[in-house]
Computed example of a mutant assay.
Amino acid sequence: MLRIVLFVLTNLAVMALLTIVVKLTGLDVYAYRRGGLNLSGLLVMAAVMGMGGSFISLAMSKWMAKMSVGAQVITQPRNAEEQWLLAAVRAHADKAGIGMPEVAIYDGPEMNAFATGMSKNSSLVAVSTGLLRNMDRQQVDAVLGHEITHVANGDMVTMALLQGVLNTFVIFLARVIGTLVDRAISGNRDGGGGGLAYFAIVMVLQLVLGLLASLIVMAFSRWREFRADAGGARLAGRAAMISALERLDANHGESTLPKAIQAFGISGEGGIARLFMSHPPIAERVAALRAAA
């Protein structure tokens, strides 16, 4: 799958770091004490931090994915399986009109694959050893088509833009609410505020609002999975895409992918409730493909 939680952990970490930098440079205190709240200035600062944090996360996505799962990029095929894998990805990339992605294999018992990267022409497609062992080539080909469709649809950049906008409002609202709460606690004393209490309130609010914002990101993630399934069906055949999803459903278990990139995988349905799922239930995805036929 693609785009959403290379963000969640990475994006939250980057946002926390940027918040600390703003605190250390005194920008928060300056915004706090500028005669009431300088809302326009605060919004500009929030936009710079929010969009910046999101695109920093996007820029780190390939590196973080490789490090998280120990993915080994195929530079020189060592066997017939790796040769076939490179050829299949190249064929789908050519059909989709994108540059050849890096192709990697990572050690994992579950059947999974993911795609990520900064742009359509600088991406990574990785598959688990469990996927290669437990699916036939037609099914694996369909999974690769699904991942290539994520790249071709520009899901990575779209996710970064969506996350950036949400980050902006999270940062802005956290500081507005934090200012009001801190002033109420301090009794609106002149010269008060902007200290450690205000900083702590803002950090907590950013975390809570960020989790709420993730519901929107998850909803978008579920929607794009249907699009990627349709793209996989176009590239590899509808029957192969349905067969691959049914194979996943029959052997569905707990994903061993790190939480930071679970939403990028072909399988895995996210959290314990639908609102927190990064993927729709596989039965719904299969039904959508059959209905489209």
Score class of each variant (00 low, 15 high):
H92A: 05
L132F: 15
L257N: 07
S221T: 11
V143N: 11
G270F: 01
S243Y: 00
A87M: 13
H252F: 05
A293P: 10
D94A: 04
V5R: 11
A80K: 05
F55T: 10
F220H: 09
S128I: 03
F276V: 11
G232E: 14
T168A: 12
G232R: 07
V217Y: 00
L85C: 08
V29C: 04
L207H: 00
A126P: 00
F55Y: 14
N121L: 01
D141T: 03
K62C: 08
G268I: 00
E110G: 00
A197D: 13
L86F: 15
A16F: 10
L207A: 13
A80M: 05
G268F: 01
R224W: 11
N11H: 12
Y106Q: 13
A236Q: 13
I272E: 13
A46D: 03
L42Y: 04
L196V: 09
F169Q: 15
A197M: 01
E82N: 15
I4F: 11
A219W: 09
F172S: 07
Q163F: 08
R137H: 14
V48E: 09
I148Q: 04
R183E: 14
E110P: 06
L209D: 11
N112K: 05
E284M: 06
G130A: 12
M277K: 08
V217L: 02
T19M: 00
L209P: 13
A115P: 08
A142Q: 14
I266W: 06
Y30W: 08
